[in-house]
């Protein structure tokens, strides 16, 4: 897995305009009836930071997102956005927030431009201001030529870009993006992320996003893995990968269960079975690759060897696979 060419510095130190928190979450819990969705979240997101929330569906991402967007009041704990309590002063928080939901929030019967005008009015922008900002965004997101088409006539990818334009239109200080690049082709996805980095550098924008793309997660300053209602790890992608240490070897065997026992007996290490393949974290993995192939030549379909990726971090933490673009570098 190659690093994206213009990945921001890990940690984002030096680029943050101030050290004050954009978001401060303390002891946040939430449950739907009997089912707990959030089991005590503590998290500070710095101003000017690009923070990725990752995790499988049902892990609590959406609930956390709704709390931050002021749609759901926290049941336990406290959440402040720019030092305003989201439960006590949602209207003050909303003013500084840009939100892009996973589900479309544009009106298909209105044109792209009309959608943006309507959105700008909801945020109290006057016509001149909103038209100027809309023109910039339409240009930047490649929508300028379709500005007078109704959104219902646009392809899924273009409609998604209208959502993104809407979220940024009123110049928010914090944008919450739930799977922003779903439906975008890889080029548009990279381009949009670069634009977020640009807005962060220029205007001090703080970004919190969820994603299923490892490539996007790699470009975040910090990421937090959510699993079963908890944040199981929060750090810069490079630090998270460094924590695993050594190499990751994945053995695709004809009979994974038998192979797991044989590797355990022979090499004394305990492979994890992930998605039908055996996964081993170890120092000097290249030697193991040689030895394992020599030991069981007929029983192995393939062996993959590499430095740990974020996918490996996630598997290490949860024992589950997660990213959509792993193993398909052409599509990522």
């Amino acid at each position: 897995m190659t690093q994206p060419p213009c990945s921001p510095l890990a940690g984002g130190e030096g680029s943050s305009p101030t050290t004050t928190a954009a978001i401060a979450i303390a002891g946040l819990t939430h449950r739907y009836g009997e089912r707990p969705a959030l089991r005590g979240i503590d998290l500070d997101v710095r101003r000017g930071e690009i923070f990725g929330v990752l995790g499988p569906n049902g892990g609590g991402k959406t609930t956390l997102f709704k709390v931050l967007a002021t749609l759901v009041a926290p049941q336990g704990g406290a959440v402040t956005v720019f030092d305003e309590d989201t439960a006590r002063h949602p209207e003050r928080v909303r003013r500084r927030l840009g939100v892009v939901f996973q589900h479309p929030a544009v009106d298909g019967k209105l044109t792209v431009r009309e959608n943006l005008a309507c959105h700008a009015a909801l945020y109290g922008l006057d016509g001149v201001e909103s038209r100027a900002r809309a023109a910039t965004l339409l240009e930047r997101l490649g929508l300028a030529e379709r500005a007078d088409d109704r959104v219902e006539a646009l392809s899924g990818g273009l409609a998604r870009r209208v959502e993104l334009a809407k979220g940024l239109l009123h110049g928010p200080d914090l944008v919450l993006l739930d799977e922003p690049s779903t439906g975008l082709d890889p080029g548009a996805r990279r381009d949009f992320f670069s634009y977020l980095v640009h807005l962060r550098d220029r205007e001090g924008l703080t970004v919190v996003l969820t994603t299923h793309y490892m490539e996007e997660a790699e470009r975040c300053d910090r990421i937090g893995f959510m699993h079963q209602g908890r944040l199981v790890a929060v750090d810069a992608p490079a630090h998270l990968k460094a924590e695993i240490g050594g190499d990751v070897v994945v053995v695709d065997a004809v009979d994974p269960e038998a192979m797991r026992r044989r590797i355990e007996e022979r090499f004394g290490c305990v492979p994890q079975v992930v998605a039908g393949a055996l996964r081993i974290e170890m120092p000097r993995g290249h030697e193991f690759v040689r030895d394992v192939v020599e030991a069981f030549p007929g029983d192995i379909r393939s062996v993959t060897y590499g430095k740990p990726t974020l996918e490996d971090v996630f598997v290490h933490l949860t024992g589950e696979r997660f990213f959509d673009d792993v193993g398909a570098p052409g599509g990522a």
Partner: peptide, 14 residues
């Protein structure tokens, strides 16, 4: 159902 209302609900309008 379409999600438009959700977009309005997170905006500052009362």
């Amino acid at each position: 159902k379409s999600g438009f209302l959700q977009g309005v609900l997170v905006s500052p309008i009362s």
